[in-house]
Design a protein around this nucleic acid. Structure first.
Length: 884
RNA sequence: GGGCAAUUAGCUCAGUUGGUUCAGAGCACUUGGUUUACACCCAAGGGGUCGGGGGUUCGAAUCCCUCAUUGCCCA
């Protein structure tokens, strides 16, 4: 059977994924082994795979496969997030296309559409992960709105309410007029936008005088309830206690004083609109001002906007400016840039708005979460460490979490109103329970309903919970740890080991999971958090749909193979640094796959002869490689322990391309059409297998494919569940000696190239040996450079020469090839370098303070360097003498 | 406006406790090579004042100060 010389990923990847699925290797059950658990950051249920997911899930898969090979009970729990606002926005948009307005639907009707959407698109992203090779335990696939998950969320809400941590507050919230819902502070993105600063004058009541204020939002004058000046501002002293008249609507408002006003900014006068600005609200509360809400929920003006009623805020801004100008109230307009809050999801400009919302009191909840990450003996490690600062900053300045959303898609808040009063509600897991509690509450009260109260009088709060209020329970709820805290799964898998996610959701999700972990399990949810970078394009732009600079993930996999893409992503992704994605790296990954494939092809093609003895070269080469492999293995494991996966991969890459393919295979390769001895062959196969094992986490498909080509294997012998190579001590001496031999080989190759001596013409090598070096490697050098003899001499030999350490090597060459001038030039430049180096060392050694202060170890080293360099200089000098 | 981080070869990045021949890797580039696994290959080679300036030290890419640029987070 002939094996194609090009590796074709598309022919093997789905085959092996099916095989792994069929034999259930991804599934984990509680057993006696040490668990290794990762919960996936659940992607949006209706999302599609983008580069960020690819990176993040590749990393998780590498960790999971590495753990599985290392004998741990690896469990990677997949799932999706209902992503309340994002999904609801998509469903609303789709309905709109069909001519259906959400407002015309009942909650039940809308949710039916949403679930339909979910069943159509939900899970696409999980199928895409399979293409990438993700070895998730698909039997455990969870969804944040699964009944058990929702039950857990409701249970937690009720519990926190009963603990007094959830309260209802009339507060200024971030209102998204597009989605018609509130957003948490974290969902608001501040963008610098160019706008205007409008100078508007207000008439002083009972006077002809005017007072000018500066505002960025002239349309909010309808909501003005005061003008504020700084009490220390002498310019306005005479206005104290007077009143001003709001232009257009002619309302009379007080002039108040507060130190809050910045004298330097604008005119030093501020109009106060408590309903539409957070700071104005604080002023309003302090000075007991009227609160006038001028907007509808879509940010069009309401009746307070008079003749502008029904028009959008930005339209009104233009029109009201015009009217003010016509009526002579507009003094001037200045260009002004300011930061404007926009919705993360809909991009709409946020409108600060006062409304009744549900809040979670954070102050006490964060305490154990701060300690867990920043304490003296942290239970949770962030990688890279720099995010600890960000974490600290956020956690120490945390504000109460607005957990209610004016959406339908999500868990409906389990608060039931029985009356119209602000506090006429109870919180319970079910309506029935709520009824019982309400009944009791009523019986102790003097409420009108007291006598006639029935369950039908209960009206559940319309709002749904913030999506993160369900995902913050994820590491617990996927193991049903909220509802059944003593079940064997939660006890076994929790706390999980590693969490891999992007730094953009450090607060949204990671911090809150830590909080929930301590509140509900009294234990961290995970041990390590690996924060990946954001994937950017070559021009450092964030990859986004709107820019269209994000490559199609599935197309990449088609072109380069999943293995190739995995390698491409990992080669450039140090933890926490953004990564400039470059398709060329996937190409490199693909070529690497081909390289290994061909190495395998070479070995597979050898004919074995059990009667021939093992050549010395092969034996030496194998000894060296085994030491080299052990050294690499130690480095790989070290990198794994520090989450330096790119470095681990790079070690393997170099091990396989350089050490294994370029050196070892060339060393043991039998002459053309000659058989190989059995000892060497068996050893090489073992080495190849070990290479495949360390590479498997990174390139699962290719390695499994070759693994099964090497020998017929039963499902119990699949590579995915093989035993990872065991670390052993290794002989560093043999590695150093080999390095010297390879330097000699390079020297000879350079001469062959410079002097145009083809490889097929044998050459002779003479050496003036000053190093303590046995001749162990001579046969190897001879084989790889086609050298007929290597002889020690005491005198220079005519021909080309080179030096390795203090040894001098000569290759006799025919007269016409000798270029004395070139040789001299080469030697002189070597000499110059060596002398410069020596000067540096000697300067140091002559410096008394160095000799006195530096540790003995360092001085000894410097002396050794000095003598080595002196020896080298002598070698060069004698060579030069002879040439001149 | 406040905080955090980064700046090392053409590009993307390592450089761990200040001290091994420390100035590195991969890619790219230049030159040469193909009957003998792979041109998706092999070999050899060039390339950096470690962002600028100042300081600490016997010794600085590494520590400190300062300036510049860039990115991130927060308000």
């Amino acid at each position: 059977m002939s094996i194609p010389s090009k590796y074709d990923a598309s022919l093997v990847e789905s085959k092996w994924y099916d095989y792994w699925m069929k034999h259930n290797y991804f599934h984990s059950e509680v057993d006696d082994r040490e668990p290794y658990t990762i919960v996936i950051p659940p992607p949006n249920v209706t999302g599609v795979l983008h580069m960020g997911h690819m990176l993040n899930n590749t990393i998780q898969d590498v960790l999971i496969r590495h753990a599985r090979l290392s004998g741990k009970n690896a469990c990677w729990v997949p799932g999706t997030d209902h992503a309340s606002i994002a999904t609801e926005a998509k469903v609303v948009a789709k309905l709109k296309e069909q001519g259906i307005d959400k407002n015309d639907l009942t909650r039940e009707e809308f949710l039916a559409h949403a679930w339909e959407w979910k069943s159509e698109y939900g899970g696409i992203i999980l199928d895409q992960l399979k293409k990438l090779g993700a070895s998730c335990d698909w039997e455990r696939t969870a969804f944040t709105m699964d009944p058990e998950m929702s039950d857990s969320v409701i249970k937690v809400f009720v519990d926190l309410f009963n603990k007094g941590l959830i309260y209802r507050g009339f507060r200024m919230v971030n209102w998204d007029p597009e989605a018609k819902t509130t957003l948490s502070d974290e969902e608001v993105i501040y963008e610098e936008k160019q706008g205007n600063l409008y100078y508007i004058k207000y008439k002083i009541e009972g006077s002809d005088e005017f007072l000018t204020i500066a505002t960025t939002r002239p349309e909010t004058i309808f909501g003005d309830s005061a003008i504020c000046i700084n009490p220390t501002d002498t310019r306005f002293k005479h206005l104290k206690g007077k009143k001003a008249i709001v232009p257009i609507c002619n309302r009379i408002i007080p002039i108040i004083e507060d130190e809050y006003v910045d004298i330097e900014f604008g005119t030093g006068c501020l109009k106060v609109t408590p309903a539409h600005d957070e700071n104005d609200k604080i002023l309003g509360d302090k000075h007991a001002l009227e609160v006038i809400d001028i907007f509808n929920e879509d940010a069009s003006l309401n009746s307070f906007g008079l003749h502008y009623e029904g028009k959008d805020r930005f339209v009104v801004r233009k029109e009201v400016t015009k009217e003010l100008e016509e009526k002579g109230f507009l003094v001037k307009i200045e260009v002004h840039t300011n930061k404007v809050g926009t919705s993360e999801r809909t991009k709409a400009v946020i409108e600060p708005r006062l409304s009744d919302q549900w809040f979670l009191r954070m102050e006490d909840l964060v305490k154990p979460a701060i300690e867990a990450v920043l304490g003296d003996d942290p239970a949770i490690n962030l990688y890279p460490k720099k995010f600890e600062n960000t974490y600290r900053h956020w956690m120490e300045n945390i504000r109460d979490w607005n957990i209610s959303r004016q959406l339908w898609w999500g868990q409906q808040i389990p608060a039931y109103f029985y009356g119209n009063g602000k506090n006429d509600f109870v919180v319970a897991e079910t309506k029935e329970e709520a009824f019982q509690i309400a009944k009791k509450k009523l019986s102790d009260s003097t409420h009108d309903l007291k006598e006639s109260f029935s369950i039908n009088d209960l009206r559940q709060d319309e709002d749904a919970l913030d999506t993160w209020f369900s995902s913050w329970l994820w590491p617990i709820s996927v193991f049903d740890g909220i509802r059944n805290p003593e079940n064997k799964e939660i006890k076994y898998y929790y706390p999980t080991n590693d969490l891999v996610t992007g730094p953009d959701i450090l607060f949204f999700w990671v911090a809150r999971m830590i909080i929930a972990g301590y509140e509900y399990k009294s234990e961290k949810p995970f041990q390590n958090v690996y924060l990946t970078g954001l994937v950017r394009d070559k021009q450092r732009r964030k990859m986004s749909k709107s820019l269209g600079n994000s490559p199609d993930a599935l197309k990449l996999i088609e072109t380069y193979g999943a293995d190739g893409v995995r390698v491409g992503l990992l080669l450039s992704s140090a933890a926490g640094n953004d990564l400039m994605f470059d398709e060329e790296l996937c190409q490199q990954g693909k070529q690497f796959a081909n390289k290994i494939w061909n190495a395998f092809r070479l070995i597979k093609g050898w004919e074995i002869d059990k009667t021939i003895p093992q050549p010395q070269t092969a034996s030496i080469g194998l000894t060296w490689y085994n030491a080299k492999f052990q050294k690499a293995l130690a480095e790989i494991e070290d990198h794994f322990s520090k989450y330096r996966l790119s470095d681990a991969l790079m070690i393997i890459y170099k091990l396989i391309t350089d050490d294994f393919s370029s050196w070892l295979l060339e060393i043991v390769k039998p002459a053309y059409q000659q058989p190989i001895d059995a000892t060497t062959f068996n050893e090489i196969v073992k080495i190849l297998e070990n290479n495949l094992k360390v590479l498997h986490p990174f390139m699962p498909f290719l390695t499994e494919e070759i693994w099964h080509h090497i020998a017929r294997r039963t499902p119990d012998e699949a590579l995915i569940i093989a035993n990872y190579p065991i670390q052993k001590d290794y002989d560093n001496e043999v590695i150093l000696k080999f390095d010297m031999a390879s330097a000699i080989i390079s020297g000879i190759r350079t001469i062959r190239k410079d002097k145009n001596i083809p490889f097929r013409d044998p050459i002779k090598l003479y050496v003036i040996n000053r190093e303590i070096n046995n001749n162990q490697f001579h046969a190897l050098i001879q084989k790889l450079t086609n050298t007929s003899v290597i002889e020690e001499v005491s005198e220079k030999v005519d021909g080309a020469s080179f030096r390795v350490k203090s040894n001098e090597y000569f290759v006799p060459i025919s007269e016409e090839n000798i270029d004395v001038d070139a040789e001299i030039l080469k030697l002189e430049s070597e000499l110059k370098r060596a002398r410069g180096f020596l000067t540096g060392i000697q300067k140091k050694l002559l410096n008394e303070r160095f000799v006195q202060n530096a540790p003995e170890k360092v001085i000894v080293l410097e002396r050794k360097k000095e003598s080595d360099t002196l020896a080298k200089i002598n070698t060069i000098l004698t060579s030069l003498d002879r040439l001149k």
